[in-house]
Design a protein around this nucleic acid. Structure first.
Lengths: 127, 127
DNA sequence: CCGCATCCTACAAGATACTG
DNA sequence: CAGTATCTTGTAGGATGCGG
């Protein structure tokens, strides 16, 4: 488990610390995903690291792992309520990031806010 | 400079990525500080890393470095407007972190919100 | 006092091969 | 399919010594 009992801000950095943690959460936002599906949509992550980071996110209570006793095996990962709740932080990060760097890619495929924009390219997605 | 032109959320993780970046910003919040003062108040950071992270924060426009041409030399670091503005993100992080881990240390000396509480130990500091 | 140069270590992450 | 085991690599960070 990520170290707690310290400054709450450091707690958050600890929980989201891994190189891929936030990316995984972002991917999971639209709904539960299977292990391989997750690996494929992230693209460049190794299985080892994906498993590892998922376990840590699970321990920290942000994602939950559901095993379906089937053949072939199926495992789905989903955001917990706590996992959903961190998106208030992401929302602020996104706002700040956009202000600070307005020339970011017009649509970043893995960002839960941008994702909606490809079809919905007219409205004001923010605020 | 931290990589930009990508997902705004990743931009933020990039900018705050270093082990000490957020800690430095937190220390700087009350007002400008000198190099050694900063090193002392953080305590366990090495000079090399402090310099390095300060340079990166400077390049990303979060802190500004002011050199006073005196003997002995004096250098002060301060938050820029952009540096101040990231505290909206910290604020959300702190809120989330407190909910997720309510048993964090009663007062964490380096947290800009907690710091005020030591004297002001009565009121509701949040919200 | 401030901070750069150099060297070194520890750990996160990648690659690959194998298993229930 | 969804992992583990093992090995290798890259890099952030630490320690120390010198210089403006």
């Amino acid at each position: 488990m990520t170290e707690k009992g310290i400054c709450p801000i450091q707690t958050v950095f600890g929980i989201l610390g891994g190189k891929w943690k936030h990316r995984i959460l972002l991917e999971l936002h639209p709904g539960p995903m299977r292990y391989n599906q997750l690996a494929a949509s992230i693209g460049t992550i190794s299985y080892k690291v994906l498993t590892q980071q998922l376990r840590e996110l699970e321990e920290d209570g942000l994602v939950c792992r559901k095993v379906y006793p089937e053949v072939p095996p199926r495992v789905e990962y989903a955001l917990t309520e706590m996992g959903e709740s961190i998106f208030v932080v992401f929302r602020e990060m996104r706002r700040w990031g956009l202000e600070c760097d307005p020339v970011h890619e017009p649509v970043c495929s893995h960002c839960w806010k941008c994702r909606g924009r490809e079809e919905n390219a007219s409205g004001s997605a923010d605020a």
